[in-house]
Structures are given as structure tokens and as C-alpha cells.
Simulated scan of single mutants.
Amino acid sequence: MTRSYPAPPGGHPPQEDLLTGRAVFTEAYAVIPAGVQRDIVASRLPHWEGTRLWVLARPMSGFSETFAHYLMEVAPGGGSDRPESDPRAEAGLFVTHGAARLRIGEETRDLGPGHFAYVPPGLRWSLHAGGETPLRVHWIRKAWVPVDGLAPPDPVVAEAAGIPPDPMPGTEGRWATTRFMDPDDLRHDMHVTIVTLQPGAAIPFLETHVMEHGLFVLEGKGVYRLNRDWVEVEAGDYMWLRAFCPQACYAGGPGPFRYLLYKDVNRHAPLGPVVPG
């Protein structure tokens, strides 16, 4: 089945629109609705041609500190041979629109909507848009945390449609996770997954945990409990959760509720400021 993914609306709203919206930034979470992803808040990056992006999350002291999440829009023929300036950075890339040519080390792969790639730190890579329509890709960046005796992970290239979803116990598959990384591979210090809840399915308790989250809604709508609040979200919206923010949700229907999820995993909690090695 070919899936349709949401894209930033861009443009500029008319003067007649109301100021009232759903965007919120609190001490524990933020919601960035699709409707605020406009031209006026787009950014650009050095060494990227024909490209603009929306920065949905970035490290901030006292809030989500481990990752950045970009929503990239690359014109046909655009892209970069020098996409990353930080040698510590690992990347998770998820394509939603258009065609991408990704080179990791000496290997080149063609990616389309629903494809995911993981690029380990220190490995040269490039990304370019092909075809006749813009390439849109989620780019999740994190500084890989080294561990004595563990090498960085291997690159990963996968297609969501080819990965059997892993159902949560006792849900008969109504709540399932598509896992792009091996959860038993402790070289990984972040996981990027797709979570799918069928209409009426729920995360039935207030998860309260150390992992930070970035959640981009790929399909459908749902109601999320974030800290003390109930928040309604739909395709194209983004949620940004700090560590220990209580969270639960249920899918609103009429179709599945799916989101792309980042979380940090598999490392000790730092006991003081992290000093670069």
C-alpha cells in the first residue's frame, strides 16, 4: 500500500486568519502544529543547495538535551556533499516525499517515501534530490555517546513497509512498533521507530521515563496526555517531550494513528556536565 505523508504547508497565512492556534511550549513538553510550519520560520544550512528546513527540536538546557530534529525540503537537483559539520553526529533519515540518492561511505542507495537510513558518526555521507518533485526527509541528529569496547553501529537502510510491526503484548496488534534498529544492539544510543495505533487503541498508562522523545505524526489523529494536559494532534503535528514527562494517548480514528518516534537509549545517565573527549 502506498502511504501519503504530511508536508509542511509553507506559504503565509492570510491576514484574516485568527491568531488562536494549538502551539504550546511548557516546562515539560512542546507541541508544534503543522499549521505553524510556514515560510517565515524556515531555515537554511551551509553546504546545502536548493534546501530549506524547519527545525522542530534542538538541544536546550533543562529541556530536551540529546537531539535535534529537522524537516528538510530539497528542490530537485539540490542537496549536499557536506551535510554534517559535527564529527560526533549520527543521523536518522526518514523520507516522506520525492526521491533521494544517499551515499554512505562508498555505497550509494536510492530512497523513496517510507525509506529509513541510519548513518553512524565519523562516516562520510551525502544526500541529493532526484526526480521532478521536492524531496522531503526527516533528519534526526544526535551526538553518539562512545562506550569502551563498543564500536559505532553499522549503517542501516530499510523500508518501513518491509519490516513486520512488533505488536505490544495483549493488544492483538492494535498497538505495534516498526523498529528500524535492532533493540538488542547496544552500540545504538538512539532508536527511531514508527508507532501505529489502530482506531480506539491506547497507551493505557502514564509512561514516565528517562527517555526524551520527538514524535512527528505521520497519519491520522489522536489525543495525547502530556504531563497534566490532554492535547489533540493530527498528521503533520510534532511533539517534543523532555525526560520524565508523563505521557499516554489513544487513537481517534477513523483510520490508524501513526507517528515517527525518537528516543535516547542504552547509556548511563551522566553524573555531571558532559566534557568532550
Rank of each mutant, 00 (worst) to 15 (best):
V145T: 12
P8A: 15
N266T: 04
V55R: 15
V55L: 12
R82T: 09
I140C: 05
A248L: 05
S61R: 13
P153C: 08
I104N: 02
Q247D: 07
P153N: 07
A30Y: 01
R101S: 14
G10C: 09
P169M: 11
E212D: 09
F25L: 08
K221L: 03
G105Y: 05
L93D: 00
C245A: 13
E234V: 02
Y250M: 07
D39M: 06
L206G: 05
L18F: 12
A23S: 10
E84M: 13
H115C: 13
R141K: 15
R82V: 10
E49L: 10
E49S: 14
Y118M: 03
P6G: 09
H69V: 11
A248V: 04
R101E: 15
M168P: 00
A100M: 11
P169Y: 07
I140Q: 04
K142E: 14
V233W: 04
C245V: 12
W240I: 00
W125R: 06
V231K: 10
E65H: 10
P167W: 00
S4Q: 13
P59T: 11
P276S: 12
P76F: 03
S61H: 12
L19D: 14
R58F: 12
I104H: 03
L218F: 04
R109M: 10
G170L: 07
Y70I: 01
G272R: 13
E16R: 06
P276F: 09
P256T: 08
L261A: 06
P153W: 02
P59H: 11
P8I: 05
P8S: 08
A100N: 04
P165Q: 11
I163G: 00
I140N: 01
R136G: 02
P14W: 08
L127R: 04
I40G: 07
L56C: 02
A30V: 09
Y70E: 08
H191K: 03
N227K: 05
T178I: 00
A243T: 14
A100W: 07
Y259G: 03
T96L: 07
Y259V: 01
H268L: 11
M1W: 09
F94L: 02
M1S: 13
L150E: 14
D39S: 13
S4L: 08
R187K: 10
R101F: 08
A68G: 15
W54F: 15
D182I: 07
T178S: 00
D81R: 13
L206R: 15
P165V: 02
T193M: 02
V147L: 10
Y224W: 13
F216N: 03
N266E: 14
L53S: 06
H47C: 05
V265K: 08
R88W: 14
D229A: 14
R52C: 12
G253Q: 09
D110P: 00
G255C: 07
E207G: 05
L241T: 13
L215T: 03
L218N: 00
G255Y: 10
T178M: 00
G272T: 09
E219T: 07
Q15W: 02
L102C: 07
V95K: 04
G21Q: 09
L135P: 09
W144L: 10
P273F: 11
V74H: 06
G130F: 05
V231T: 04
R101D: 12
W230P: 00
E65N: 05
T196P: 01
